[in-house]
């Protein structure tokens, strides 16, 4: 191979690798869904996953939303001031939060927190033969490990996004009223009057999709983990990277689907 075609070959290999991985993840997702509708269903595992993915992610998602909403209000104020439109701060902050930044940043924070922990946990189970042990105890690992986590994330992340939306808007409100001279009641009334149902609803649907992606990537990469501590480390890293990229790509596609004219 000449040194001119070598980069092309590498590019081709990478493309084929990515396509293959996408195919395998899709199959894995299909298998997860097929197990979702067939008993048995492990309720205890599901509740544990809800606690871990939903409840324990609240602080990090809440803080992210708070600071994002506050910064957004400042930016929109500065931008709006250029054409004397400072009064748009409440409405644009709200729409930016609930449509985009709430779901996307919430999803990314959950990816960092949850995809990594799921991948590390399941990867360690794989490496220490706990997954094999499940099989010998007549328990399907997909049903016992993957289904509860994926379902819990798909249901909990929209709730997290909803809470994040409220906290983010309150962050904007706090900055708006203390630093930018808005009247508190007017700020909230502007926000409330302006937001439409689908602004919020689309963000929640995005949250569900991102939750599904996060748990799926965590489980997939955990189950695919190589041997030893190095294998688990690699699986964890891959899960977070894959979940984050997939969230951003899915966000674009969903935004196209929901809002393109």
């Amino acid at each position: 191979m000449s040194r001119w075609t070598a980069p092309l070959a590498a590019l081709g290999r990478a493309t084929l690798g990515a396509l293959g991985a996408t195919g395998r993840v899709t199959l894995f997702a299909g298998e997860t869904l097929s197990h979702l509708v067939r008993p048995p269903f492990y309720f205890n595992e599901f509740w544990r996953a809800c606690l871990n993915i939903g409840w324990l992610s609240l602080p990090v998602v809440g803080l992210t939303a708070l600071f994002t909403g506050a910064a957004l209000a400042l930016q929109i104020y500065a931008g709006g001031a250029r054409f004397s439109a400072e009064q748009v701060v409440p409405s644009i902050t709200a729409i930016g939060m609930v449509r985009e930044l709430g779901p996307v940043l919430g999803g990314l924070m959950v990816a960092a927190r949850v995809a990594s922990s799921i991948a590390a946990e399941i990867g360690t189970m794989k490496v220490t033969e706990q997954i094999d042990a499940l099989t010998t105890l007549s328990t399907n690992a997909m049903k016992y490990l993957t289904v509860p986590r994926v379902l819990a994330a798909t249901l909990c992340v929209p709730l997290l996004v909803g809470v994040g939306d409220i906290i983010g808007i309150m962050g904007g409100w706090a900055v708006g009223t203390t630093r930018l001279g808005f009247n508190s009641t007017t700020y909230l009334k502007n926000t409330w009057d302006f937001l439409q149902f689908w602004d919020v609803g689309s963000g929640l649907v995005k949250g569900a999709a991102f939750g599904f992606i996060v748990a799926l990537m965590g489980c997939y990469h955990g189950m695919q983990s190589g041997r030893g501590a190095q294998g688990v480390g690699h699986a964890t890293k891959s899960a977070v990277v894959a979940a984050s990229v997939a969230i951003l790509a899915a966000n674009y596609l969903l935004t196209e689907a929901f809002f393109s004219a």
């Binding site: 048995p40 492990y42 946990e121 189970m125 220490t128 033969e129 706990q130 094999d132 042990a133 499940l134 099989t135 010998t136 105890l137 007549s138 328990t139």
Partner: peptide, 30 residues
């Protein structure tokens, strides 16, 4: 597998569950 038991070389206990849950795993579900 339903008629079967296995001791793994590295024990392969489920570390998220207490010891007795591990032992009774089969007796608590399925």
């Amino acid at each position: 597998l339903a008629r079967f038991g296995m001791l793994f070389q590295g024990a392969a206990l489920f570390d998220s569950l207490p010891v007795w849950h591990n032992v009774a795993f089969r007796l608590l579900r399925g």
